[in-house]
């Protein structure tokens, strides 16, 4: 990658500090690397639109009470059932007279919760299996990777269904069910990343200084694995959202009256032919959000490839 674009950055500016070909500190080098990746990322319009969608989702979830009226998301106004779009109800109302716009806005909180919770479970579990496998090798590696392979060979949605059925419907159980079937790729990834750095000199140096295995893994190897794990997670988010919405559609996710998008599509099925918006709009929300994560993940992967 070019060290400085033409015309060069103003000396002494933040940009010059970031793009410096001779970073003076480790921190400057790290920030510089991130900034260069960001410059590459910024040139990719598809990736930027993905970022915009994801940012919008986060903002919508955080500021939901400011954007829409929380009450009308669950308030049943039966005389206003199945109204088409109007100024009062931008997306119309559903079969119980609830405002679809407010439900979509508040539904973003559920979607985001599921995605974050799955990520929070899946990454540590994947690392906990993959890191020791790559680090210790031998029997540990064989046993752990066999277990991973077994889980990898499972049909994901079907297993999630069986789990959700056994644990009972609900968001938490949907999250557990998805997480249980989503961790194996992270274990493989963490193992592969560990293997590439296992014999590196800085690891040997740390070993010679008497650092424990746990310390080496936590302070030296985990930071090396994280970038690729995060990219993989972003790419997986779309699949996680679709699986969660699928469980919701089948009635195994968030329970009514929670405004879960998949469940909203399901309830709109009854009136699909006459009031198409009831099922279509929440489905569109699922589609846009998962498209956003796909675009963002693709862009992140391209940016990281360009760097290496």
């Amino acid at each position: 990658m070019a060290t400085a674009p033409v015309p060069g950055p103003v000396p002494g500016s933040l940009r010059a500090w970031l793009l410096s070909p001779a970073p003076a500190s480790r921190r400057q080098a790290r920030f510089g690397r991130w900034f260069r990746a960001w410059l590459g990322f910024r040139r990719n319009p598809l990736a930027m639109s993905g970022l915009a969608i994801v940012a919008l989702l986060v903002l919508m979830a955080v500021f939901a009470p400011l954007i829409a009226d929380q009450q009308s998301a669950t308030l049943q106004v039966l005389q206003d059932r199945l109204q088409p779009a109007s100024w009062q109800h931008p997306f119309g109302t559903d079969e119980l007279g609830r405002d679809i716009f407010a439900r979509v806005v508040f539904g973003s909180r559920i979607t985001l919760t599921i995605v974050v919770m799955v990520g929070v479970i899946v990454v540590p579990v994947g690392l906990a299996i993959g890191l020791p496998a790559g680090y210790f090798g031998g029997v540990v590696d064989t046993v752990l990777m066999r277990i991973t392979d077994i889980f990898l060979a499972f049909p994901r949605l079907v297993l999630a269904l069986a789990f959700a059925a056994a644990l009972g419907p609900g968001i938490e159980n949907a999250v557990i069910a998805i997480a249980l079937t989503a961790w194996p790729p992270y274990a493989r990834l963490a193992r592969a990343e560990t293997l590439t750095s296992r014999r590196a000199e800085f690891i040997q140096a740390a070993e010679l200084q008497g650092a424990s295995h746990l310390r080496i893994i936590a302070t030296q190897i985990v930071p090396l694995c994280l970038p690729s794990v995060i990219i993989r997670l972003t790419l997986d988010m779309a699949g996680i959202i679709l699986t969660a919405a699928g469980l919701g559609f089948l009635g195994l996710g968030a329970q009514p009256p929670a405004p879960e998008w998949g469940a909203m599509v399901s309830s709109g099925r009854q009136v699909l032919l006459d009031q198409w918006w009831v099922a279509t709009i929440p489905g569109l929300a699922i589609f846009i959000v998962s498209l956003g994560f796909n675009l963002l993940g693709d862009g992140l992967r391209d940016a990281s490839d360009a760097r290496s």
Partner: peptide
Amino acid sequence: LLGYSMPVFWLGLIGLL
């Protein structure tokens, strides 16, 4: 990319409609 991002049950409903 569209194929990756579409919820299959929703696409089915739209198709039926």
